[in-house]
Design a protein around this nucleic acid. Sequence first.
DNA 1: TCGGCGTACTTGATAGTGTCAAGTCGTGGC
DNA 2: GCCACGACTTGACACTATCAAGTACGCCGA
Lengths: 193, 193
Amino acid sequence: MAQTLRDRVIKAAVKYIADSGPDGLSFRQIAADAGVSHQAPYHHFGDRSAIFTEIAREGFQKFTEVMSSPARRDEDSNLSVQLCERYVDFALTNKGYFRVMFRSDLCQMDESPETQRAADEAFDTLLVAVGEILGSSASIDEIRVQATAMWSVAHGLATLLIDGPLERKIGKVSDRRALVRSVANRMIDGLTS
Amino acid sequence: MAQTLRDRVIKAAVKYIADSGPDGLSFRQIAADAGVSHQAPYHHFGDRSAIFTEIAREGFQKFTEVMSSPARRDEDSNLSVQLCERYVDFALTNKGYFRVMFRSDLCQMDESPETQRAADEAFDTLLVAVGEILGSSASIDEIRVQATAMWSVAHGLATLLIDGPLERKIGKVSDRRALVRSVANRMIDGLTS
DNA sequence: TCGGCGTACTTGATAGTGTCAAGTCGTGGC
DNA sequence: GCCACGACTTGACACTATCAAGTACGCCGA
């Protein structure tokens, strides 16, 4: 209860988005649920899109934390695969954030340097990790292409799992981790050698 | 002018979505632009989400056409890479459709067998293509993982290019085809061997 | 030729939405 | 004591999808 209204609003919004996506979300409803007037949320954020922008900011921040935590040094699990796993894990356990982070139509990042910085930091984390994996011999350009490739496969897998028809198509994914791992492995085999 | 209102509505909606995303879209505005009453579009589609569902259906149909057209037999371009290129090409030249096709929150496919069938057909096309690439020795399970992997990388690349922060992060993509090709190549090297 | 009938719309009303513009109310500082 | 300011409320507005009627018109069987 010590939670500020601002936090409660964001929390409720993130929960709703995780369950039903960002589109039907009504901040009037959230305000009513919180027992405040319909205008109260807009006092803390200028307008509707500002709330999404803030959610994206927090999302990128959490994302950076997750992706930059120290790697396990298993012999049976490639570092690239670990990155991929973490990405997908983050997306699936933080649907409410993830669904907003990559929706430029909702967020209008250009008006929020903080969110932009958080997003930059997130990608930089990825770049650094890929750089470490490739080693010092790799050129900047090579790292870039490589990071894009890894980002793509992780992002694609995550979005297809969350919103896409993947599950319905390849059958129930009983062991998500195994799928992610085998997909990532398959993709990555050719490039760290 | 021989175009039916139904077609005009869809066309206008797809254009709007390509420009600004599906969320701010107002069917009342589209009706006004078309010079008909605010209720006219809803006569052809039961409700708002039915229009999106129909857009998705057409999208998957177009997608299947594109993906199943005969492959070029260049020696310098791997078949898998070609698939990937086509996927991304489709997404970028059909933003208006693509942005809707994978938004299960907008589409409610479960109420439209046609759209569901179109989506199934689209993925089957992908499965078949991957099966051909892998050859007859590959197991069903292997094809599935492989298809998922290819789908992921293509889908991720496409969505990151369309809505995501990719361009801002890796710099202006002057030659998109080259990027797609190098990413796809890098990803695919390890697996068709 | 006429009556019905279904399709393609229109018109009107309703509930719900974000947003602008004014309040009100309490707390902290001078 | 007062005043400013932050946190909210209240009320109005324009806009939205959606429900429920109504209207116009072409077709088809008798």
